[in-house]
């Protein structure tokens, strides 16, 4: 029974959350209040962990909630249920794209979505700068990363490795000084 409930709640989350993992927050918050599968405090910590463990944040939180509630099977149920609405949408849209690739409206929508997507990304980036870049060392690290990305074509994983290392070095230095 709990599996069906998990499947139902995360199917709903997958169906109604647009714009990536952070859009699932209000749904997850709501689920926490109704069912108490996890606390709000856990949810906050979960988002911190989700942002450093591999994978989409939306998937990570679904897995976590499912696991906490009903073990490994629960984790699978919650995660897969969250993706099924998207799978259906993607298949339908892909078929339409194939069939009507020369249709005026299909082309018009894709042409419009690109600048919107750019706008959303700018919005997300600025939203992230405020809470993350709070001091001089964050500013320096960001500048270094941006310069590296402009000067050369590096494998994206390099940026993660480099910044994680930078974080670790700073933490070590701090603990040595204190």
């Amino acid at each position: 029974m709990i599996y069906l409930l998990l499947a139902y709640e995360f199917f709903k989350t997958g169906l109604f959350s647009f714009g990536g993992g952070y859009a699932t927050i209000p749904f997850l918050y709501n689920i926490s209040q109704i069912y108490g599968w996890y606390t709000i405090d856990e949810l906050t910590k979960m988002f911190a962990v989700a942002s450093i463990t591999p994978g989409p944040v939306g998937i990570n939180t679904a897995t976590y909630a499912g696991f906490k509630t009903a073990g490994i099977l629960g984790a699978l149920f919650a995660t897969v249920s969250e993706i099924i609405p998207s799978l259906i949408c993607v298949i339908i849209v892909s078929k339409l794209l194939k069939k009507f690739s020369d249709n005026f409206y299909v082309k018009a929508i894709i042409k419009t979505l690109k600048p919107i997507s750019c706008g959303l990304l700018i919005f997300v980036a600025i939203g992230l700068i405020k809470p993350s870049v709070t001091d001089i060392k964050a500013m320096i690290l960001l500048t270094v990363l941006l310069i590296m990305s402009y000067k050369s074509k590096l494998d994206p994983i390099f940026y993660f490795g480099f910044s994680a290392l930078a974080g670790l070095v700073i933490a070590c230095l701090k603990s040595f000084i204190i």
Binding site: L128, L141, L145, S163, A164, G167
Partner: peptide, 21 residues
Amino acid sequence: SIFWGVGIAVIALITLTIREM
């Protein structure tokens, strides 16, 4: 501290995404 570093890298990668688009 590693979280912190990765958080900054995410911003850099989003700018990279914007540039690609």
